[in-house]
Design a protein around this nucleic acid. Structure first.
Lengths: 301, 301
DNA sequence: TCACCCTTGAAAGTTATTTCCACTCCGCCT
DNA sequence: AGGCGGAGTGGAAATAACTTTCAAGGGTGA
């Protein structure tokens, strides 16, 4: 039997500090120094080699290895790996008050973190609150529609354009109207089998409700994508898709999170339609991809 | 100079998967295999030695080390340490994520879940990979710019419009150019102190690079928001903001996640500017809010 | 006081990582 | 078409890191 130490337990994951305390009495003085250093600054020790840690604790490499063994690892290498994991753990643990509002004097790094977090929250909320039955119905209607008209103004206008752009790419006739007057005059052209989609966060944007009303009267399938399903827009909508309303702050206007939410809905809608029309959508998608390729400079690698 | 590879960034903590995707195009085949293995199974790879990983990926030790360097670590040892941290992270983090791709026959409810999850991932990756120093510099430049020109075509055009819209709302002179020719002719008007922002996922969209080049030559502060920081667009950019490149599938074109990523960057930029110009931004924001109020029907709740 | 055993670090030995170099393959130019 | 140059790659030497061995030192109990 060689110089064996009781490696009684598996490579403990996070309970390292506890283990150190438990085992401390059985340790020799030098080993205690090593264990102390490891428990005190896991992150720092993870960056050190055996030699480094030996020097830091004023001991030898052999002692460091012995300590690692005692702590339940096959060698120092594995202790170090565990240490790295533990370090990553604890510095992620302290979430810098991510729930806090974005303040005027927040450093830019915090802005990024908070904003990303907020948007993630918005996405989760939207996904949770989305009525998949309604969505399915809209997908079905859109897949077979003769034409699809989309209404949106302001920030929602961009969402509408995004949807139209994508639907066009898979060969559907979709148009995003930005001018309210033209929208109404075009809505008159709609009939049963066509689809009209109104996008408005407030649910009460007159410029968007009006064309939807006309489409509704004409017998088209009408859809409202709104954060206020109880708003006026819904009365002319066969299907209502609800977007989430995140808290807004002075620096973060509602438009920002509503846009995220709307885009998710619109993307789901698009993918649903693409699935349904896969036979024609797939070739259309690759065709438009091809067409774009030569617009990029050759060098890409 | 020895066999050196561009270890451009610090040892990224959690943004590893994102970094792999961003850098993938610059990588050689063998390196891609290694990077893939690392991104695919951080925990598993953390348990492997250089030789082990080399064998697993069917490459050589040298290639593994090269890949580690490219990812921003001084060597494989450090990559391994980071991997261990990441592994500890994710298995403590959360439940078995929905990593599966969106399939043609997925029910609509799954589409919503998966898509929301993917977009959340994209946001996290983007936030982790965003260079806050660069962002800060862009914010500073934009806050005091005489005028801000924004270039983007296709899907990126909408992102550009979004940014322009928001900047206008806080009283800055911002314009999103959609027509490449007009963009160039307008870029000629720029001079030192002005800001030009090009948005292109591929980093090689000629229609966007051209106006940026002109702006660059004119002495304006130029910014590129791109998923390929090594792309041609960067050579005319004083500041490069990197968006993340999520995996795409047949049903989920790259445009979708790149848009999410771009919007986050743009939002951060906007909030940064709003902070800096708070004195004027706050009243401007409420003024525009007021102006919109009467466009909505009276009944709201 | 002596013998024993435990603790410890130096150094040898082993394994892992990094560096160097030569070979190959691919694209380009002549 | 042939050859020339350069990037990409893996093999192997060199180096660094880790592990083991071993002998010296120091304390303790007989």
């Amino acid at each position: 039997m060689k110089e064996s130490f009781s490696a009684d337990s598996p490579p403990a994951p996070a309970a390292l500090a506890a283990k150190v305390r438990t085992l401390a009495p059985t340790m020799t003085r030098s080993m205690q120094r090593v264990a102390e250093a490891v428990a005190g600054d896991p992150a720092g020790c993870a960056a050190l080699t055996v030699t480094g840690l030996a020097e830091l604790t004023g001991t030898s490499e052999a002692t460091v290895v012995r300590t690692a063994r005692l702590l339940g690892y096959p060698g120092y290498r594995d202790l170090r790996l565990a240490l790295a994991g533990l370090a990553a753990h604890q510095l992620s643990g302290r979430a810098p008050a991510v729930t806090a509002d974005i303040a005027v004097d927040d450093p830019i790094a915090d802005v990024v973190t908070k904003l990303a977090h907020d948007e993630q929250q918005t996405l989760a909320d939207t996904a949770a609150g989305l009525d998949t039955v309604q969505l399915g119905a809209v997908v079905a209607a859109a897949s077979t529609a003769r034409r699809i008209d989309i209404y949106g103004v302001g920030a929602s206008s961009l969402v509408g354009q995004d949807l139209a752009q994508k639907l066009l790419r898979i060969g559907l006739i979709a148009h995003a109207h930005m001018d309210p007057h033209l929208a109404v005059t075009n809505a008159v052209q709609l009939r049963a089998g066509d689809v009209a989609i109104a996008i408005t966060h407030s649910g009460s944007t007159g410029d968007v409700i009006e064309p939807l009303r006309v489409a509704f009267d004409r017998g088209a399938t009408t859809v409202a994508i709104t954060g206020r399903p109880d708003g006026p827009v819904s009365q002319y909508a066969d299907h209502v898709l609800t977007t989430s309303t995140a808290r807004e702050s002075e620096l973060r206007p509602a438009a920002m999170s509503s846009r995220t939410s709307q885009l998710l809905v619109v993307d789901c809608l698009f993918i649903g339609v693409a699935q349904r029309t896969y036979e024609t959508a797939a070739p259309a998608l690759s065709a438009s991809y091809e067409a774009l390729a030569h617009r990029h400079s050759p060098r890409s690698r």
